[in-house]
Amino acid sequence: MTVAIRAGRLDDNPELLDIWLRAVRATHHFLTEDDIQVFVPLLRDHYLAMAELWVAAGAGDAPVGFMGLAEAKVEMLFVDPDRHGLGTGRALLAHAAALKGALTLDVNEQNPGAVAFYRRCGFRETGRSPVDGMGMAFPLIHMAAEA
Rank of each mutant, 00 (worst) to 15 (best):
D34Y: 11
Q37A: 12
L31N: 07
R90G: 14
E109W: 13
L69N: 11
F30Q: 02
L77D: 12
T32P: 02
R25T: 04
E52S: 08
K100M: 01
M136F: 07
V24Q: 04
T88L: 03
L43T: 14
D61F: 00
I141A: 05
L17N: 02
L86E: 15
Q37V: 00
V24E: 01
K73I: 09
R120E: 15
T126S: 10
M76E: 04
V107E: 03
A62K: 10
V55H: 06
I36M: 10
D18I: 06
L140W: 05
V38N: 07
M134W: 05
M134I: 01
G113I: 06
V40R: 13
P63H: 14
W20Y: 06
Q110T: 01
V38S: 04
R83N: 10
V55Y: 09
C121F: 03
G60L: 08
A7L: 09
M143R: 02
A137L: 06
G127I: 12
E125T: 12
L77F: 12
D106C: 08
L93Y: 04
R90I: 09
V131C: 05
D35L: 06
S129H: 14
A56Q: 09
T88G: 06
A72K: 06
V74K: 04
D80E: 15
G60D: 11
D80S: 14
L103C: 05
G68F: 15
D35E: 04
Y118I: 06
L48C: 02
A116T: 13
R44Y: 13
F30C: 01
L10R: 14
L77S: 12
L92E: 07
V74R: 06
V3K: 05
A116C: 05
H95T: 08
D45Y: 08
M143C: 02
P14Q: 01
T27R: 06
Q110K: 04
L140R: 05
A114E: 07
A57N: 09
A114V: 03
G8L: 06
V55W: 15
D106E: 15
G85Y: 00
G68Q: 13
I19F: 08
D12A: 14
E125I: 03
W20S: 00
G135N: 11
E146F: 12
L69C: 11
L140A: 07
A26R: 03
V131P: 00
A70Y: 15
L86Q: 12
D45P: 01
L77H: 11
L105S: 14
L140V: 00
D12K: 07
A26W: 08
A98E: 14
L86H: 08
G89S: 11
Y118T: 07
N108S: 04
M1E: 04
W54D: 10
A57F: 11
G89M: 14
F123N: 10
M1I: 02
V24N: 05
V131A: 10
A26L: 03
G133P: 03
R119P: 00
P112S: 04
G101Q: 07
M76K: 03
H84D: 02
L92R: 14
G85W: 02
H142D: 01
P130K: 07
